[in-house]
């Protein structure tokens, strides 16, 4: 139907992260608000397994484009296929995850369709029949609500973990509508030569627990201790810009306006003062624990629990106590 809500299902080399289906829950809520249905759309070399999983998460219809040319994600191939589906069916709303792949396809598809999109949304709602997309601006100091009253579909990318995962029900199934879309290999611009897997086991953006360090950590070895705490908790290691710029820890760990935006359930900030540009990347975490020597550090104004003290004494104590309580 023309006012359906479509959700792009992200996958990579046949590797399916359950997180790919997280938007089906909010997609359903929006569709209910519009009196329509949530549908999934999938592009890939083979789509049947992905479609089956989408049915488990509550959609009854999956639109798909299959082909050898879609082995491995390539933005031009995927965006051309996606925009062909979106212009044929013109759903009311199309949602993508604000990951590298989701952003690449959403942006290129919107450009093909010649209109803008709202990126990295943290709130989505139907309000008086209108689709409202909410996102953070200026380092999270402001929240802006964006609408698109001129073009369809209204495209949004959604920050991972902004909405609860829908429940999985393996008894459900549905219909796969396969569309053909051909594009010649010679007409594509890119070729993937290799993928070098990161040694960092847990993806910062998807982590439920993050242990993060700032200027107060003082030295590269300090991050070893934070890494130990992260490991005990099954979490990921984060860092402030000051720590990254000092060369103590790699940029891939940076949280903040010029790093990653994260929304874990627990964020433990060690030796981080809480500069605006760092808060921008983590202030929506569910629970923030701050450890800092300076009782006036702005981080304490944003922390659920604050510990005024030397992290070199506090962190080893936390490691010891977590280990004994959790039996690790």
């Amino acid at each position: 139907m023309a006012n359906d809500v479509w959700v792009y299902i992200e996958h990579k080399d046949g590797d399916i992260s359950p997180m790919s289906y997280e938007l089906l829950g909010i997609g359903k809520t929006l569709a209910d608000g519009l009196g329509s249905s949530v549908c999934a759309f999938i592009i890939g070399e083979k789509v049947d397994d992905l479609a089956k999983e989408a049915f488990y998460y509550g959609v009854s219809k999956v639109y798909a484009i299959e082909g050898d040319v879609f082995k491995g994600f390539r933005p031009d191939a995927y965006a051309k296929a996606a925009s062909s589906l979106l212009s044929k069916y013109t759903p009311e709303i199309a949602l993508f995850r604000a990951t590298s792949q989701g952003t690449d396809v959403a942006a290129a598809s919107a450009a093909q369709l010649q209109f803008g999109l709202c990126t990295d949304s943290i709130g989505l709602a139907i309000d008086g029949g209108k689709f409202k997309m909410t996102r953070a601006a200026f380092g999270g100091n402001y929240t802006v609500t964006v609408v698109n009253e001129k073009a369809k579909p209204q495209i949004a990318t959604v920050r991972p973990k902004s909405f609860p995962m829908p429940a999985k029900d393996t008894s459900k199934s549905g219909e796969v509508v396969k569309e053909t879309f051909s594009i010649a290999e010679a007409d594509l611009n890119t070729k993937i030569l290799d993928f070098m897997k990161s040694e960092v086991a847990i993806n910062l953006v998807e982590a439920d627990i993050i242990v993060s360090g700032g200027r107060g950590v003082g030295k590269p070895e300090g991050f070893k201790m934070l890494q130990d705490l992260a490991k005990v908790l099954g979490g990921a290691l984060g860092a402030s810009r000051a720590a990254v710029d000092s060369g103590w820890v790699a940029y891939e760990h940076q949280v903040g306006q010029t790093g990653k935006t994260v929304k874990p359930k627990i964020y433990i900030a060690c030796g981080i003062s809480g500069a605006i540009q760092h808060l921008a990347g983590m202030r929506t975490s569910d629970c923030i624990v701050a450890i800092n020597k300076d009782p006036d550090a702005p981080i304490f104004k944003n922390a659920s629990y604050g510990i005024v003290g030397d992290l070199n004494q506090v962190v080893p104590k936390l490691i010891e106590k977590f280990k004994s309580k959790l039996g690790r």
Binding site: Y142, V144, T145, V147, N148, I288, Y305, G306, I307, V308
Partner: peptide, 21 residues
């Protein structure tokens, strides 16, 4: 432009939590 900002708000402060002493 198809997309436009219709509302700007200041997100509610997190509110300082508990300082553990």
């Amino acid at each position: 432009s198809a997309t436009k900002v219709v509302e700007i708000t200041v997100p509610p402060p997190r509110g300082a939590g508990e300082i553990l002493k």
